[in-house]
Design a protein around this nucleic acid. Structure first.
Lengths: 335, 335
DNA sequence: TGACTCGTTGTATACGTATGCAATGAATAC
DNA sequence: GTATTCATTGCATACGTATACAACGAGTCA
């Protein structure tokens, strides 16, 4: 069509409507003072020219982009798919958009977070990764609130919303012991992560409190199905095969379950398997996984509330919110 | 710490370094002319103040945000999760960031796309949704290229990168007939979608060419596991049970497979099941799904190339790229 | 009629950065 | 010695919008 190379600005609209640029700005700003008549003329001219306000220019003045940065580290876990969908959906409902920062490695958070800050995001949510104190300082200096999702860091200035992973581990220990298991094993996920550490700690702690010990331990190293399969394979071929396996995530547990089947081990009669997360697939009939449910909706909602609160009330002390978990009893464990 | 409320700007850095604001800008602009000495002073001052360039202000001048909008409609399908991860990862490698637009319903694309344009994104990728001609016009007027992912629209001005869904349907028909199946059924996904329509068309067309007809048809309506289970349930309880089912997606096929098992039907001896997408789970042992592989990497790579090409060379004719598919033979079908 | 309020409008400026232009100075060539 | 080139620098302006401020006109009240 008739494409002048410069996009339409408020000046163009103002010229056509015979008013000042300020009048145009006011008709597109809620609560500004414009007479119905000018408003009509402006809207008419805007419609004729196909004008759309420039959110970038507006952001520059208002010192607010209405954009939230989300740092996602491990894209693999389906639990985080759901979480991510809910984040974007609920943020949009509240007038915020989402800039995604995909950090393949934990280490890359150090590079991506500064980029988010350069884009002047109003806030950042960091999922499944921690923040170095250097990064936390930088965000604080920029005045950009950060919420850690399902991680916590006691010594930094970041907010956090976190499941009680220690409590989750204890839940499983109690349930397994109550049902008479005596030779429990643990398959770890990523060794460095606080979620993995806390789940294992809660599990072994509670076992110890009740006079038992962790019989065996394997590391899947990743939160994936094949890694879970491989770890279970090592575990189940050992001399003293465990009578129960607690897995650091559902994907690991599903791999372990299939491995047990392939080895001809009956689940749950000969072996109980318990997962963690309660992803959608955990409920599918061929798995029917007993697992610790992390209430994703509540986690997300709380994170958003903490973040928006920090945005609207700058200079507050960082907050750590704990979200309780519960055990979903299905058919992969004899409980 | 010592927080002056305004963030640090190039003026602050310039004052401390004893140079002009322009000199600061130049040290942060590749290829600009600055002496090593001033550069050093500027970087020193910037470091001391914790200065970071403001990407929003830069975007305003350069008429380029280095942000790509991605419109995602149905978050459910794991295939799109992989696709989304690859998009963000590869775009980041090329210096682009990703603004996510989550449209729960198809219809909401009409509302979200204009928002992306207001944020001056350099381009838009629309996955699993079509574009009204009104929206296409608006994007064209804004000079923002759009690439439809796995959809095509012959009459609009949008680019498209698309799998040969008709060809995929034909592949399956040939494979099933070659193996001696005589009573094939189809489980449809979302009725309106072009992917669903084309897959079914290719399947039935090829059946007809070889003197067969589609025996039965059911609609899952959604691309989900439970919907696939329910549709298969209706299909397999009917009088003339099919000897093969072609499903519009892998998730539907996995639901159908579990339904067949629950009904005591042997797969693949009594019933062949074929899916579409080749998501990661399709390869897991308990499913081992025979399916049509959509080469996600190639789809994504091509989409990015088409989009970046359109960004760098404005005013080009829209392009439609076709990507071939192939059949992955596993154990859910007797082929 | 004059003083006052109040809603509307335009002017001017600011947000933080990039860049065209002219000025400066050093280095080179004759 | 002068003329010329060239890299570097600061000044000024532009990007598109929001808003403080003052000006204006209409209306109200005394």
């Amino acid at each position: 069509m008739s494409n002048s190379d410069r996009p339409i600005s408020q000046h163009d609209v103002a010229r056509l409507a015979g008013v000042s640029q300020a009048a145009v700005s006011r008709t597109f700003t809620d609560g500004a003072s414009v007479s119905p008549e000018t408003r009509r003329q402006v809207l008419e001219a805007a419609e004729a020219l196909g004008y759309r306000p420039n959110a970038i220019a507006r952001s520059l003045i208002k010192h607010s982009t209405k954009i939230i940065g989300i740092v996602l580290v491990r894209f693999g876990n389906p639990f985080y798919w759901y979480v991510f969908r809910e984040f974007t959906r609920r943020l949009q409902e509240r007038g915020y958009w989402t800039l995604l920062l995909n950090a393949a490695q934990d280490q890359q958070v150090e590079e991506t977070l500064p980029m988010a800050l350069q884009y002047q995001v109003d806030g950042v949510i960091v999922t499944s990764a921690t923040l170095s104190s250097k990064m936390a300082d930088e965000a604080a200096r920029a005045g950009t609130p950060v919420v850690l999702f399902n991680r916590y860091e006691l010594d930094t200035t970041a907010n956090a919303v976190c499941c009680d992973n220690v409590g989750g581990g204890r839940l499983v220990a109690d349930a397994l012991l109550d049902a008479g298991h005596v030779w429990p094993a643990y398959i770890a996920g990523e060794e460095g992560s606080s979620t993995n550490r806390d789940r294992e700690r809660g599990f072994t702690e509670r076992l110890a409190e009740r006079g038992h010990t962790l019989a065996l331990r394997e590391a899947a190293l990743e939160y994936t199905y094949p890694a879970g399969y491989a770890a279970a394979n090592r575990l189940l071929r050992s001399e003293n095969r465990p009578d129960a396996i607690f897995c650091a995530s559902d994907l690991i547990a599903m791999g372990a379950l299939d491995c047990a089947r392939d080895l001809g081990i009956n689940v749950p009669e000969q072996l109980s398997i318990v997962g963690y997360d309660d992803i959608e697939m955990a409920g599918w009939p061929p798995y029917s996984l007993t697992t610790v449910r992390q209430p994703a909706d509540r986690l997300v909602e709380t994170s958003i509330e903490v973040l928006l609160n920090a945005i609207e009330n700058p200079g507050q002390e960082p907050v750590i919110e704990w979200i309780p978990v519960d055990l979903v009893r299905r058919n992969s464990a004899r409980l």
